[in-house]
Design a binder for these strands. Structure first.
Lengths: 136, 136
DNA sequence: TATGGAGCTTCCAGTAACTGGAGGGTCAAG
DNA sequence: CTTGACCCTCCAGTTACTGGAAGCTCCATA
């Protein structure tokens, strides 16, 4: 298979597949003409990577997950540990976004959004509260 | 004020403040000795930026928000528009993360996390489903 | 057989928003 | 006069790609 074929079948852009080779995630063979030549196993690994990335795992996590996948002697605890840590990070991120969301939503609702300059959003951003020097 | 003072009072790292000058968000004066010399108005603007960034606005949004803040002839609708668009992006991001979270949580709970190699997480990642060619 | 277009190659640069570090000047206290 | 805390600039690295230039290769059609 050429790169276009695996791109289509894995759902990953050809650019991304070349990048994954660059960083050593995959090692496709080469044809006489210099084209990358992918086996089914390469495709399988790319699909694996695509799914792992879709779950938000970092590239380094993906590297580890692939290694574990190929390691007969792995312990599922190793995989679970990575996933749990990632889950924690996702939860943190969600909490952070929801906190932003709450403030932002409040401000947006408080803003008339008309032709006048008065704006609670700007007023909030401009308020003098985060200066420790003023708290003495 | 030197950069260390505004860093302390704004809560932003000195590095970030220099960066903000680099990209034209602020224009502190310079002392004889070449040190940046910040006025209260610079500090105020930095605090504004810090709060806007904490709400997740991009630097470019921040640039626009500062400009609007300083524009007497602004219309609150302009500000509200930026905030609403940002809110939408946050909602999208939250939805995406929650979807990841749901899958991941399910997988984590399904995984024994012991010394055996069998792992539902890896099995899920490895499953053959995203290849359109197999769907014919 | 020529040619045109799709597909492949490499390499370089850019993205967002910083962050770290090297190498070196300045200032105030002891 | 030295020491340590500041400050300066400039360069490189981070994440995970993405876009684009310049230039092969392959295949089908005129």
């Amino acid at each position: 298979m050429n790169i276009g074929d695996v791109a289509r079948r894995s759902g990953l852009p050809a650019k991304t597949i070349r990048y994954y080779e660059d960083i050593g995630l995959i090692r496709p063979k080469r044809s006489e003409n210099g084209y990358r030549s992918f086996r089914e196993s390469d495709l399988h690994k790319l699909a694996f990577l695509g799914r792992a990335r879709a779950l938000g795992f970092t590239i380094e996590d993906c590297r580890t997950l692939v290694a574990l996948y190929e390691d007969e002697a792995r312990e599922s605890a190793q995989v679970k540990h990575i996933a749990e840590e990632h889950l924690r990070q996702i939860d943190d991120k969600i909490a952070q976004l929801q906190s932003m969301r709450a403030t932002l939503d409040k401000l947006v609702h408080a803003c008339a959004g008309d032709h006048r300059p008065d704006c609670p959003i700007l007023e909030d951003l401009a308020q003098e509260t985060s200066d420790p020097a003023t708290c003495e």
